[in-house]
Design a protein around this nucleic acid. Structure first.
Lengths: 212, 212
DNA sequence: ATCCCAATATATACTGAGTATATTTAAGGG
DNA sequence: CCCTTAAATATACTCAGTATATATTGGGAT
């Protein structure tokens, strides 16, 4: 009863999409902080409350694909091959994403406007940190779950923390390098180098546990 | 000319302390989010703008010792013994803080109200995440600096990320355990166990670099 | 003392995100 | 064609934070 294909649902999604598109355009034109909700509502030709109806927080209009990213990681862990540790599965995921030039890696001129716009706003950086925390918590649960360990196992939280920290550093260092050199190949090598180092560290930390 | 001991400075600091004390009391009584700046100003018998004069953000009235904590860590790294790696120095710091029951470790009933109040507020959690990020960035600089590596060395950022992540998990897991068992000794052992594991991982990740 | 300067405190008015609530509009289902 | 309900909207509010102008008060000089 949730994903019905009736006109009501179509209209709701159309309205949502229209707001999202309008907001994204304005954010890129003038920066996140200097666009107000009222402007977005006016530009999308909807009432102010309709905006909050679809996006409880202003930041939700910018980060609209959190769940997809989480699902990508959790799938990689859940569907890993036999004999592959969860930590190794995250390393493999990083390499796969880079070799198939996945859009989420965003090491190209096409997508770095997204990073730049996000990094220019304290509010968006705060939301990104919150998402990172939520992801870390959820990752710990998935790790424990797929390794037959009790929920809340401290080692699962340590593993999740080290992995997320590694990915975070890998992303930001690769992005910095790309900004400096405009060389996507070099940036990708940097990304994977950090991933490999960090993952090796996580594996060492979790040696003799179910996670490595 | 900054830390003059004249009456003007004494009055300014007294006003600041009065606001801080009043705010802390109200936060603990009724929770951070349900205390307004106006109430704090009224209770401290100062004008509203005076509050913002001393504390640009509401959260600054709660977290008032960020610099002390950072200095503690940076001193431990800067003043480490010869032949001690920076990563090992952070491990040693953790053990020292626990054995001398330092107030910042806060694994006792006296201080956990602080954690509880902070964790009950999204705004305070967001500020804590921001402080964590700032600290990680500063730590990377100190690590590179005291290891004669170039500023911005990716390995320094990886080391900083892994260390901070480890401490973060150690704190929260120990806190959770203390809440469950009310056994400070057990909580401390958990704290140090996570620290040792995570630090070993960081050292492994940074093997053959200047940081381990 | 008294005059001047600068730091601090304060008053007033504003912006903008987010909430609460009531009302209207329009789609689906009998 | 009604009836129910989801979605959109209008209005009014709270509160943090900013801008700016003014008042107060301590320190330093003559």
């Amino acid at each position: 009863m949730d994903e019905k294909d009736d006109r009501r649902t179509r209209k709701r999604l159309a309205t949502r999409q229209s707001i999202s598109d309008t907001a994204t355009r304005l954010f890129l034109e003038r920066g996140f902080d200097s666009v107000t909700i009222d402007e977005i509502a006016a530009a999308a030709d909807v009432g102010r409350m309709t905006v909050f109806n679809h996006f409880p927080r202003k930041e939700d209009m910018f980060f609209d694909r959190e769940e997809e990213i989480q699902a990508l990681a959790f799938d990689a862990i859940r569907k890993r091959g036999p004999g592959v540790s969860p930590i190794e599965a995250t390393r493999k995921l990083a390499h796969d994403l880079v070799t198939q030039d996945h859009e989420f890696v965003m090491l190209s001129g096409d997508t770095s406007w997204f990073i730049k716009t996000a990094m220019a706003s304290e509010a968006l950086k705060a939301r990104a940190r919150e998402m990172r925390d939520d992801f870390t918590r959820a990752l710990a649960i998935v790790l424990a779950d797929t390794s037959n360990q009790p929920t809340g196992d401290p080692n699962a939280h340590l593993a999740a923390g080290l992995i997320v920290s590694t990915w975070n550093v890998a992303f930001s260092e690769a992005q910095k390098l790309f900004d400096r050199t405009r060389d996507a190949g070099e940036a990708k090598r940097c990304f994977l180098a950090v991933i490999d180092r960090g993952t090796a560290g996580a594996a060492a930390a979790l040696a003799k546990t179910a996670y490595a």
